[in-house]
Design a protein around this nucleic acid. Structure first.
Lengths: 189, 189
DNA sequence: TATGACTAATCAGTTTGTTGAGTATGATGC
DNA sequence: GCATCATACTCAACAAACTGATTAGTCATA
């Protein structure tokens, strides 16, 4: 039961429809959780049935009607309880790492390509997160913002996401380089 | 269908029983995949039925009998095919990040504690991975090993795991510090 | 001599997550 | 004026992952 808490966390700062939430999940919240729109709609329905969020219908002229959700007091209490419970250990779970594990034996060339693709994706994400951080902190500098800013939670998780992507980028490029070099060494002999 | 490939990758360098595999998963392979023993037994059974691994019974006197598994040629081909397909994007999925997202609103004190616990766990993992890396490369230095070592796959994934844990450690301590400082600032007023 | 830890595995049940298709409407672009 | 995109959401089926219990013999230890 963790998607529910990610949804509650994402919904804490405002009212969103399922559709908007799906978008938002792709930017800010995606740093620590990932979900498809179908999951979000299902989760919102469950949360509403349990009274942890409440939805209201908004009739629109030029667009299909939508339902906006907000966290209820019960929802806030649920989040509170969740924050108190011990966190499970985290771990990476990544296809690409499985491939690197066997890359010196199997399909090296393709894995090098995938590492470089990943590196590009990481670069794009880094740009995006950088922009998001600048937007979140506004004019003040980071230290100032972190000490006195009103809502730093999202900023802190973005920092983690940024560090993760930077680390990932560095690693991908280094590993791709090593595998390349080994390939050409091998060819020489 | 990714656990199957993680299992094949873990089994590439030798023969293991389900039980041993469960242990091994907790050290080397845990850098990129995590699974409970039950899952591994189930996956091994499936892989055997599909002919991707083959098991042989080993009768033991003082211990319960066990079945040792090795990757077949078909299994190697399956891994090969997997390495060729495009990798899915990876993402962090972490309870603790959800909590940090709301930490400035809800249950701050408890979250600080959890961040510090995580930091300790990361430190322990860093030690463990450091030892594992030294063991894998033997006497030669890293650069030499990466260029000319026979089997560098596991080393490369451990490097990723190590970097991840170090990053995580740094972040946890920094965030715990920030949240603490904000708490005491708040108390002053 | 009971107690718990280690080896070795299996079973049942539930929750999560993924895949893929489908509905409906207005806006935008060529 | 036709195709495609964006908004907004739903349904069904399936695959993967997690929870928790259970069996059963050996070994060390208190």
């Amino acid at each position: 039961m963790a998607l529910r808490h990610a949804v509650l966390a994402a919904l804490l700062d405002g009212e969103y429809s399922g559709y908007q939430l799906a978008k938002a999940f792709d930017i800010g919240v995606a740093n620590f959780w990932h979900a498809l729109p179908q999951q979000l709609y299902a989760e919102l329905a469950k949360l509403e049935k349990e009274g942890l969020v409440s939805g209201r219908q908004v009739v629109q002229e030029t667009r299909p009607n939508k339902r906006l959700f907000r966290v209820t007091d019960a929802g806030r209490a649920e989040l509170e309880a969740f924050a108190e419970t011990a966190a499970k250990p985290s771990f990476i779970r990544d296809d690409l790492l499985v491939k690197v594990q066997v890359a010196d034996r199997v399909g090296t060339a393709s894995v090098i390509g995938q590492l470089e693709e990943r590196a590009s994706a990481a670069e794009a994400k880094i740009e995006l997160l950088g922009a998001l951080l600048r937007q979140l902190r506004g004019d003040v500098d980071e230290e100032e913002f972190l000490l006195r800013g009103a809502r730093i939670g999202p900023y802190l998780t973005c920092l983690r996401g940024l560090a993760f992507e930077q680390e990932h980028l560095t690693w991908c490029l280094r590993i791709a380089g090593i595998l390349r070099e080994r390939q050409s060494n091998h060819a020489e002999r």
